[in-house]
Design a protein around this nucleic acid. Structure first.
Length: 880
RNA sequence: GGGGCGUUAGCUCAGUUGGUUAGAGCGCUUGCUCGACACGCAAGAGGUCGCAGGUUCGACUCCUGCACGCCCCACCA
């Protein structure tokens, strides 16, 4: 048996164990192995990524699920991999080029993409290596990449089939344009932020009148008036009904357009008349379609006004906004402008304000896909945990717009479509078209188009591989709720469409990791915690366990460094409990529970508690309730096993009464605890388990040991009740000792009158040891005597003879001194709080602290006075 | 504008189908080199469970309203 160091040192244990597991092949799964299939695919981190606490939580949870599944006997696999992360990655490399004063256009497309690949090879995937330090038991032989060969083939196949089915189409639609990255974006890549703007009221003159007459409109985006092609009013609006059909004249451009009526217009807002810019506003676009209005794109890719803007051509959109306002004013058309807060869409990548723009793009028609996904959720084919997230998920699926999938980028899956240069004809094909006049579409696909295929392409789809048959559909998808829309819903839709199966049976949503006060972690707040720093400082087990302890299902996870520190102490506690056991086991192995007659009360008690906790912890794991599982084990190990059982068992181990049974029970409990704890704290449990069982390592590992089955017969309510009586007796005695300043080393006799007299009588030795008594005498009734003190018990009373135990005079003197100082404290604080300028001007928390001090001092005084009175009675100086 | 979540000890959170003195960790106070552990042991202080009503013999727990906070979604110029 190995000698364990006095304190647990994670750094000395973790890296070697990971390497040992890996070389023994314990992470690798074989589809031909026995056991029910259990599979998880990692949400592929971006190649640009490095491990942050969100990843740490997400992957710890997956590792917990996989490790437990293995121990339960499933044929479990966890697939690693990465996402090529189109925009994000392209931006990183473009930034590197910018540092050299270059753009991607200087390199050209081919060279640029090569450059991204080079970068991917050298620095991509750091995050997967970081996951190893966290202990993640991923099957490294199955690593996949969304942009590698097999995945490319699958993406092309999916695109072509969807196109053939009429579910992918190309067309001019209003899309979100990112004027910085020069690409279209999907709706969910746009974040709405509140912005302070201006609502500008101005007048469009009638075509047949002068500038003093006309129709007043209001807008937050004056520059878009260059693309106006109508003015809309509500059909029932009495103020304007008679104007419908009239024509207005553009003040700066040689153009006239009509006043139209449309229900969309809210008569209450602004002037009740809306300028319509179909090419630059989603609502106006719809109105434009309904009324067959011309759609005039007034901006170029940089959101700069083009020649259609007449004298405003060449101005950026914000400069144009100011210039037009001024021009309106000069023309006498500006009525007024007022401050106006409103929501403006921003690119989630470049943060630039998105420009709604009419553009030729590729779209996925999502209706038919969404229908099946909705049905799968409603029918329970896929279960969302927590259930309440299902509503938002369904709402989103039920209100989908078609998905713009083309991106004007270079890094990503090239769209398998070819355009004829002369005819403009389009052909979509899995094979390159190598004929004269045909050129491939320059655009690439939205990065989520490929990642939506992840759960089946990692197993080799469209090939009918053994892996695919064995592990698809996957068991559980673990993600934060923040990407349910981006990713999860799309996997569900496309999975159902192409594999006729849900891609996962359960969607488990954890919360987002926040700082200790529940605030979002962000670099600008300076509250970011790096999980790798935590691992360095406290170990991977502590980091994992701390995250799990606060990861209540679906709610955000507050993380403070102190908690991780506290968890490290728990690991150390476990370590030392094992150290005690190991140094006393004398070769005893875990095995069958000894015959009942050989067991002492504390044995039956701890076995009963173990069984209770095992079942609670198991239920916690089953319900994805990590805090319950973690707390259950923490409490059991520390407060029951270490604090009570280990102390109790010393009587027999250091003596010679049924010590064999004691050793056996010690080994059994530890063995089960280590197994139950292993998915959450894999390293320390493995190290200790090897020491306990003598396991050689390699394939002889806790990682693949059997999950505890439980022994229902071990539940022993009588033992628990009886032991609680002893615990109460010991606790009350300790309390008495502490309150009377009796040194812990001072032993004394206890006389007990209890309705559990026989029990206490039989357990005298145990009680004496735990409460550090010289003896326990059980009597029928306590007789009040001078010089004794009584302790109240849940089951009766105990009596202590104070003669010689306490130096009454000295104790009185000590207490009186304490009382004096407590009174002085109180006076000081009370004086401070009586000072009105302090109470009014000092910060609230400082005042609150003073109030606390005041309350504390008062409580202390009351208690001291009581004890002094009691001692005075004993001394004969008080009044009884 | 729609929807969701939360409000319990100084801080972060538990609290099972409503049932005697509402729990944990951290922090705080006091004492302790007891043959696993000072990353420890023992004891202690600290809460009118956001506010106002209601149901009930009884509510932190159920209902209604309000307040505050957080989050998601959303095409009102």
């Amino acid at each position: 048996m190995t000698e364990l160091p006095k304190a647990y040192d994670p750094a000395a244990v973790e890296p070697d164990l990971y390497e040992d597991w890996r070389t023994a092949g314990l992470f690798h799964a074989d589809p031909d192995d026995d056991g029910d299939p259990y599979s998880i695919v990692i949400p592929p981190p971006n190649v640009t990524g490095s491990l942050h606490v969100g990843h740490a939580l997400d992957n710890t949870i997956q590792d917990v699920l996989i490790r437990r599944a293995r121990m339960v006997g499933n044929n479990a696999v966890w697939i690693p991999g990465m996402d090529h992360a189109g925009i994000a990655t392209q931006m990183v490399v473009e930034k590197q080029l910018a540092a050299q004063g270059k753009t991607r256009h200087d390199l050209g497309r081919e060279r640029f993409v090569e450059r991204v690949w080079e970068w991917k090879e050298e620095s991509g995937g750091a995050i997967l290596r970081q996951l190893q330090t966290l202990g993640c038991s991923l099957d490294w032989e199955r690593e996949a990449f969304t942009f590698d060969g097999p995945r490319n083939l699958a993406v092309t196949k999916v695109f072509v089939e969807l196109y053939d089915q009429g579910l992918i189409y190309r067309g001019a639609r209003l899309i979100n344009w990112d004027p910085v990255l020069h690409t279209a974006l999907s709706d969910i890549e746009v974040d709405h932020e509140e912005v302070d703007g201006e609502l500008v009221h101005f007048r469009y003159p009638f075509a047949d009148g002068d500038d003093s007459d006309g129709l007043v409109v209001a807008t937050t985006r004056a520059e878009t008036m260059l693309g106006d092609t109508a003015i809309a009013v509500h059909p029932d609006d009495e103020r304007y009904r008679h104007l419908v059909g009239r024509t207005v004249r553009h003040p700066f451009l040689d153009r006239t357009f009509p006043v139209i009526a449309d229900d969309y217009v809210d008569p209450e807002f602004g002037s009740g008349a809306v300028k319509i810019t179909p090419a630059h506003d989603p609502n106006d676009y719809q109105i434009g379609l309904r009324h067959d209005l011309p759609m005039i794109d007034i901006m170029d890719d940089d959101a700069v006004i083009t020649d259609v803007g007449g004298r405003f051509a060449g101005l950026g959109r914000y400069d144009a906004r100011a210039a037009i306002k001024q021009a309106l004013d000069e023309a006498g058309l500006l009525i007024r402008s007022e401050p106006h807060r409103h929501q403006v869409g921003h690119s989630s990548r470049s943060k630039a304000a998105v420009e709604p723009r009419l553009s030729d793009q590729w779209f996925v028609k999502v209706g038919p896909l969404a229908e099946r996904a909705i049905a799968a959720v409603k029918d329970g084919d896929v279960r969302i945990v927590p259930q309440r997230n299902a509503k938002a998920f369904l709402d989103w699926l039920e209100n989908l717009h078609d998905w713009c999938i083309s991106r004007q980028l270079w890094w990503g899956h090239r769209i398998p479509a070819w355009h004829h240069q002369d005819t403009g004809e389009i052909r979509v094909s899995a094979e390159p078209i190598d004929e004269d006049g045909w050129v491939q579409d320059p655009d690439v696909l939205d990065t989520w188009f490929s990642s939506q295929l992840w759960p089946f392409v990692v197993f080799g789809w469209p090939e009918e591989t053994a892996d695919l048959k064995r592990w698809y559909p996957t068991s559980t998808l673990v993600t934060g709720y923040d990407i349910n829309t981006f990713w999860v819903s799309r996997m569900l839709m496309i999975g159902l469409w192409f594999t006729d199966s849900v891609p996962f049976h359960v969607i488990y949503n954890h919360g987002l990791v926040r700082d200790e006060h529940g605030k979002k972690m962000s670099k600008s707040f300076g509250n970011v915690i790096d999980p790798l720093d935590l691992v360095d400082e406290y170990g991977a087990d502590a980091t994992r366990f701390a995250l799990l302890r606060s990861a209540a299902t679906g709610t955000d996870v507050p993380l403070a460094e102190e908690w991780v520190e506290g968890t490290k102490r728990f690991a150390n506690k476990l370590w030392n409990t094992c150290r005690f056991a190991l140094s006393n086991l004398e070769g005893t192995m875990p095995g069958d529970v000894p015959p009942r007659d050989d067991l002492a009360l504390e044995d039956r008690w701890i076995l009963s508690r173990l069984e209770a906790v095992r079942s609670e912890v198991d239920a916690g794991y089953d319900a994805y309730d990590w805090p319950v599982a973690a707390r259950g084990l923490y409490h059991f190990v520390w407060d029951e096993f270490a604090d009570w059982y280990v102390e109790a068992v010393k009587v027999r181990i250091y003596g010679d009464d049924r010590e064999a049974a004691a050793r056996r029970v010690l080994a059994i409990v530890l063995d089960d605890v280590l197994r139950l704890l292993h998915p959450m704290m894999p390293f320390v449990t493995e190290a200790l388990w090897r020491a306990l069982t003598g396991a050689a390592g390699g394939t002889d590992s806790l990682m693949v040991a059997a999950w505890p089955q439980g022994r229902a017969d071990d539940r022993d309510v009588d033992a628990e009740t009886d032991f609680a009586v002893l615990q109460d007796l010991v606790t009350q005695t300790n309390r008495f000792r502490s309150q009377n300043s009796i040194a812990p080393s001072k032993r004394f006799d206890l006389t007990v009158a209890s309705d559990r007299r026989e029990l206490i009588d039989a357990q005298q030795e145990l009680v004496s040891s735990l409460a550090r008594l010289s003896g326990v005498t059980c009597v029928r009734t306590i007789e009040e005597r001078d010089g004794t003190s009584t302790i109240q018990l849940a089951s009766g009373q105990a009596q202590v003879d104070l003669t010689g135990l306490i130096d009454v005079a000295a104790e009185l003197e000590r207490l009186r001194k304490e009382l004096d100082s407590a009174r002085a404290d109180l006076a000081k604080v009370t004086g401070k709080l009586a000072n009105t300028s302090f109470v009014e001007r000092a910060p609230a928390d400082v005042v609150e602290r003073e109030r606390h001090k005041q309350r504390d001092a008062k409580a202390a005084i009351a208690q001291l006075e009581e004890r002094i009175a009691a001692l005075e009675v004993m001394q004969g100086t008080g009044q009884s």
